[in-house]
Design a protein around this nucleic acid. Structure first.
Lengths: 346, 346
DNA sequence: TTGTACGCGTTATCAT
DNA sequence: ATGATAACGCGTACAA
């Protein structure tokens, strides 16, 4: 092991105390500026610290204080490019409050998620931001020990303690579908995420509701409904599948995230399918990912920076105050058409 | 505080020992399956663990064993979309070896970087992957206590102990510039990153060398050289500035990353500058970010998934074996033209 | 203001 | 095979 090979072991508070000719308690006091220390002694101690280049051991402090100032951020898929906005804003809020982050990706694997949650529990982090939740039981139980805020998947179990923020997914797909209908489309396909995720279910329901308004009843097993898994390749496959339908071939596609949309675009490019002449496309995503493509899809923007910031703030509040009443926040996304925000035509 | 408000404190190994009617040592043995325990006793202990839903405290273990199985990953800018590939591949390697990640973003602020490094040192992580290094002294010193692997910025100080992997930046810009030259361009502008970063310097040198071949001597203060900071808005400003030159207005731009290129594209769109008729563009980036844009730039692909994987592997090796000889690896990027890999015309 | 001593929850050594 | 106990490095009552 690395550290053991060092000739000189890590210096401890004792070494500083010895060097400064004071007790460890005094050094600790200087480090934490908790109770009063004489200016001269503080100076001596500080000099010793500097000279020895003493580095306090957070592990020991954490053990003693039962706090780590570290929170865990768990996501399903790291490669989803919109994620960077979430991480970035969370990081910044944490930084302002002197908190740090452990980062985990479940890759959509429930077993991996379970293992990660177990590790997190053992790690005694101060809180969790969870963007992947396939096992409500475990998370519900964990929420009694560690503050948790959720996004993506809410937990309905009344025993779950924690907050939830997300985009209003139902509203997003409802508006997009209505938009397509108003443009005259009747055969509208949907490329959605895994059906076991809340986010997919809600997005499907919004789509379904909008179609119901004009008397169309589309169920989950309809050939117009494709279940992808939010990555690019599944978008490609979805396009291939849906656009190969012999009857009721869709004239428009609702694609529920950025990555899958890229896959669709790739398929259309390779197969010379012209957008929007041969096919209309609407999606949910982030402006910066969408404004320079070779087409300008209509989309609902999920402001992930705002969501990330609010997630972090909610978590920090919950870490401070235990019995805060849980919040459920749905953020209505903005409608973009031809590159600018407009009121949707619904 | 959250945890303190809980009526029942966290259970410890002692509680398990008491419940099972054995000593803490035995429980510890069962947990770590280190030395031999009678099957029956193990069973009793395991039952107690399950019944109490005991969760081991990693903090205490870390303190005792001086290992955390956690590494730190530090980057400059989270929003750089290519980052997701790095994180993803690192995560997967770590997962395979039962390691976890703390994630930090310096946002290009040296002070923040310093604070982060201090925190990391205090945290006693097992290793560091550093993609942001403005203070070689601190990192060099730290490298004697914690295994470090670098990317982006190498450290020339012979006292630094650690590995380095990166794209061959010089080769990348050299090839791109030569390509432009072969296409007949003579006024070639470069939109580069902050000049205090190695990566920027190398990319500039590659550009400079290629131009020198045809007798053009471009220095850093040339009007054709723009210093951005790798984000989209600086790309936009760079395009505005370079394309407003009255004399020697560039006919081609070498843009050293994806994000800045997006800014350039935005500027060109807004100002009706046609690519490639009015302006040629070459860049460095990732295929998935570039293949669906409204133009198909020539680019050098930096395979960040490969680099991430190798970074993680090198770090884990270094954690295992202290006196491993430092490696310096430069990965030659692939040349893409019209969407496919080809031999560059140089 | 400062020092002594105990405990945080583990692992590891040394007995038995 | 198992138990008692000393560390790990720090914070903090309590005493001085």
């Amino acid at each position: 092991m690395y550290r053991r090979c060092n000739i000189k072991r890590n210096l401890t508070i004792k070494d500083v105390a010895k060097k400064a000719g004071v007790s460890v308690a005094t050094v600790s006091r200087v480090l934490n500026s908790s109770t009063s220390v004489r200016r001269e002694t503080a100076k001596i101690v500080q000099d010793a610290i500097n000279e020895l280049e003493y580095i306090p051991n957070n592990i020991a402090t954490n053990l003693k204080t039962d706090q780590s100032h570290v929170i865990a951020f768990v996501v399903t898929d790291v490669k989803n490019s919109v994620l960077t906005y979430l991480i970035s804003s969370i990081q910044n809020v944490l930084w302002d409050h002197n908190y740090f982050m452990m980062f985990f990706a479940t890759n959509g694997d429930p077993d991996r998620e379970t293992s990660i949650l177990r590790f997190i529990a053992q790690q005694r982090v101060d809180g969790i931001i969870l963007n992947s939740c396939t096992n409500e039981k475990i998370v519900t139980k964990l929420s009694k020990q560690i503050p948790i805020v959720l996004t993506g998947n809410d937990i309905t179990d009344p025993n779950f303690i924690g907050d939830f923020i997300d985009t209003d997914n139902h509203a997003a797909t409802y508006m997009l579908t209505s938009h397509l209908i108003s443009q005259g489309h009747r055969n509208i396909g949907i490329i959605n995420g895994p059906h076991n995720l809340d986010v997919s279910y809600e997005r499907f329901c919004g789509y379904q509701s909008a179609l119901a308004v004009i008397g169309l009843n589309v169920i989950e097993s309809s050939p117009l409904v494709y279940q992808g898994n939010f990555d690019r390749i599944s978008g490609f496959n979805a396009a291939k599948s849906l656009l190969s339908l012999t009857e009721n071939r869709p004239t428009a596609l609702l694609i529920t995230n950025n990555e899958m949309m890229k896959g669709v675009l790739q398929y259309c490019l390779e197969n010379k399918i012209n957008i929007p002449d041969d096919l209309s496309i609407v999606t949910i995503g982030n402006r910066c990912q969408l404004d320079l493509l070779y087409i300008s899809p209509t989309y609902m923007e999920t402001n992930l920076e705002e969501i990330g910031e609010r997630l972090a703030r909610l978590l920090l509040e919950r870490i401070e105050k235990d019995h805060k009443i849980p919040k459920r926040i749905l953020r209505v996304p903005a409608f973009f058409h031809n590159g600018t925000t407009v009121k949707p035509i619904v």
